[in-house]
Design a protein around this nucleic acid. Sequence first.
DNA 1: GTGAAAGCGCTAACAG
DNA 2: CTGTTAGCGCTTTCAC
Lengths: 339, 339
Amino acid sequence: MNTRKVSIKDIAKICGVSVSTVSRVINNNGRFSEETRQRVVKAIKKYNYKTNTAAKTLRMQKSNAIGILVPDLANSFFSNLVENLEKNFFIKGYSTMICDTGRDKDRELTYLKMLEAKVVDGLIVISGSRKYNPDIIDPKIPVICIDRSSDSPNVTYIGSNHEQGARMATAKLIEAGTTPILLCSSNQKISSTKDRIRGYQIEMKSQHLSDNDCKIVAIKSHKSNIDQRGIEIRSILRNMLNEQNLPIGIFAISDTIAAEVTVAAHELELNIPRDLKVIGFDDAPIAKYCYPQLTTIRQNTQEIVDKTSTLLLQMIQGDNSIRQNREIIDVDLIERGTV
Amino acid sequence: MNTRKVSIKDIAKICGVSVSTVSRVINNNGRFSEETRQRVVKAIKKYNYKTNTAAKTLRMQKSNAIGILVPDLANSFFSNLVENLEKNFFIKGYSTMICDTGRDKDRELTYLKMLEAKVVDGLIVISGSRKYNPDIIDPKIPVICIDRSSDSPNVTYIGSNHEQGARMATAKLIEAGTTPILLCSSNQKISSTKDRIRGYQIEMKSQHLSDNDCKIVAIKSHKSNIDQRGIEIRSILRNMLNEQNLPIGIFAISDTIAAEVTVAAHELELNIPRDLKVIGFDDAPIAKYCYPQLTTIRQNTQEIVDKTSTLLLQMIQGDNSIRQNREIIDVDLIERGTV
DNA sequence: GTGAAAGCGCTAACAG
DNA sequence: CTGTTAGCGCTTTCAC
């Protein structure tokens, strides 16, 4: 019952030709007669032959696979990114190895090693809390970081203009007459978060608002503990109600937090946007199901994805000129019901 | 500048031993002196040696990789499933190849072939519109289907008790005094959807309700076209308002649709749960951000994931007794604000 | 306790 | 146009 998988050798025997000839027709590389071609193709179909990728990779020192390190697939922005990256690479004949690091340092390291051992042709690293420093990884394999900085000179950076987005949101809130404005952040120290905070500060300053008008608070509880976060946010809201006049203005660092703000507002019987105005970030799917629907900053996922795949493919093809690039993608303000 | 990656041969040379000895040390397999062990381990660290997976896979006819076919990573239920599967397999030393088929038949086929060519040790197929029929795939590789039926005798099925969930939702709505009850479905013919529809029908019948009390409608527009879906749902709601008294009862086949029902209700100025009661399915993240928060049926993702990984690993280890299994996982009614 | 050698399935250089 | 052959990096008998 040990039907070993059919190999190129078997096909060769069946067709009465050599393995090299079979290889030639498979890869359409070199010369062979039309007649043998047909015979080989037929046998391949009949015996359901499939190239053994491991063997091919070993021989070619090229896997036609690219690795993707993602911090959290449950985050819709990331899963969207990954899904579309996957689609682009698939079209180009590349398979993708998606690795969810759970924002864990050790898992990231393990995955990095695993991917290198698998001879990936390229690497995409999405977000993450520290800089990406690929000491462990062969410097010859091209890598692109999305929303993650790196000290390494041959790593390309691609990311949204988070600073611009934060300025747009802040300006909108100021224009709507809500000062002071609370920036409600998470406590993750990822680079996009830092950029957004900076954008907020720059915009406040450029509109000549005092330091008293800037308030930044970081949600401490983890997003998996949604009840705890709700409690935390309600308490923040209550404090604001005590200290200032309506309407309250909040710039939330993400749509998740913005959504939680809307829920807390309902519980405190605050009317949005009359009593409280809030803007999120990302245009996550939840934005449209909040009540009212969230005003938010949309990242241009498709452009990020397209730039990333085009560039990485070029780098894999050996075009070294483009390394050390930095691409910043514009964002848009989506006006809905919370301002 | 061609620093070829360091191989087992290089390590052997450096340590003044043979490749077989190095291999023995690496895999802790066979005998070697403590002294050589230390030398080898040191060299491996110093030269940052990493096993070439392709070579190992080729030699061992085993990849320590498992393939996952998922219809849509942007769906939170699926991404959750995948994320947790990944975590489990990672712990056991298996890497996962996540393939998003976009519910496309051809892409699914291509991926299936690709995965087999990669010598995956096992396969997980999640949902999908047709039955899973693995003619193309080597029958020796173990496969588990989640929420997807198959005619093949050596495919294991694992899935939630969708029928039970639908009955619970329907019963709850009846108990809350809303008849007739509208079942608001998508137009995807996946097996879990069918089970839920059947559960609704069975429960209606068992409560001696007439055919007039059963109304099933399928949303036609694709979920990517969210505006169109909104229009469709509002028109459905308006029809119901014309034909029956308040409160209206809706069992939505998914939380996405339930969420859209809440949005449409706000636009029509219907109060939930006073004028309209709705129950969703899945307990997706959006459920908690709707207003009011969605009452829904929760699938036990963790149990599905654990059962799947345990079983697949057993099958990979050669335990054939468990093939052709069928595991049905209980679901829970989560009561929140929409009933 | 260690080494030599075969071979996993494939491609490409070379020879004819 | 086609066959022979070496070798990618690894594990595993079989000798010693």
